[in-house]
């Protein structure tokens, strides 16, 4: 290709030396940008800490972050034990939601009768606040794993179903026609075109669904539980132990972050493999 559009090297500018310099500056700026959010987070925690100390706020009202972190470290076995319970509730509920959400989305996509009969009902049900069902869920599922897993499932199911249906439907039919003109079977069209094309939507739904699963499990524990991080919060409330309460919130957030990180890993893997 002719590069007539390339400007002639001007003295002091297009030289290798200044170019390397510019590249270095660019990299430095990018590193600084990556640090911006963590630094801001630390600054906010610092302000929190400072306010609590300067205004001498009672730890019963608002414990300083240092006390919360210390509590997390000193009582790590407690948080780990209760965290495992909550983690199991989240993962089982979420896994069920992924399975049900994707399978029903496929049924809606491939079957006209399911689409006209089932999909509108599911959309209507989506508007029901799932959290409001928590007491009923306890009534039907008792006090064990059941209600937590069911709430974690129910609350994330819709978040996964709808984007998956939308992702499958969004594809321009021209892509499928092109593959069919090459003699592709519907199975091939699905795995080579429909599924990879829908993956960004599906993973968008999974990410929202996962955070909702955490909420579902914790709500389940609030309503009726003898274990779990949500239960730990109730205990903390009963004992006026606000530090333990905050530490539990931190632990729940850390758990959510860990799940999110795992999902991101799976996403990268799937995008690499399927696409």
């Amino acid at each position: 290709m002719a590069r007539a559009d390339q400007p002639a090297a001007a003295p002091g500018r297009g030289t290798d030396h200044s170019r390397a310099e510019r590249m270095r500056r660019r990299r430095r700026i990018r590193t600084l940008e990556k640090l911006a959010a963590p630094v801001l987070g630390l600054v906010l925690l610092g302000i929190w800490e400072l306010c609590v100390r300067v205004f001498d706020v009672s730890t019963f009202i608002l414990p300083p972050p240092s006390a919360i972190l210390l509590r997390l470290v000193s009582d790590w076995q407690l948080f780990l034990g209760q965290g495992v319970t909550t983690a199991i509730e989240i993962s089982v509920g979420f896994a069920m939601a992924v399975l049900a959400g994707v399978i029903i989305a496929l049924c809606i996509f491939y079957s006209r009768i399911v689409e006209v009969a089932v999909y509108p009902l599911l959309i209507a049900l989506q508007t029901v606040p799932k959290v409001a069902l928590a007491p009923l869920v306890v009534l039907y599922f008792g006090y064990g794993w059941g209600p937590k897993i069911f709430l974690a499932f129910l609350i994330s199911f819709f978040a996964i179903l709808v984007p998956t249906v939308v992702g499958l439907k969004e594809l321009n039919p021209g892509f499928a026609n092109l593959a069919k003109s090459m003699g592709a079977s519907e199975r091939q069209v699905f795995f080579k075109i429909r599924l990879p094309a829908a993956l960004p939507n599906i993973f968008g739904g999974l990410k929202v669904g996962l955070t909702l699963s955490v909420i579902g499990a914790v709500i389940g524990e609030y309503v009726a539980a003898e274990r779990g991080l949500g239960y730990l919060q109730l205990q903390a409330n009963a004992n006026f132990d606000t530090t333990l309460n905050f530490a539990s919130v931190f632990a729940i957030a850390l758990l959510g972050l860990a799940f999110y990180a795992i999902l991101r890993l799976i996403e990268d893997l799937a995008m690499g493999k399927m696409r």
């Binding site: 021209g174 892509f175 026609n177 092109l178 075109i193 990879p196 094309a197 995008m271």
Partner: peptide
């Protein structure tokens, strides 16, 4: 076709 329908992820 008129549209190239190249799969964007490939």
């Amino acid at each position: 076709f008129q549209s190239d329908y190249l799969l964007p992820w490939r």
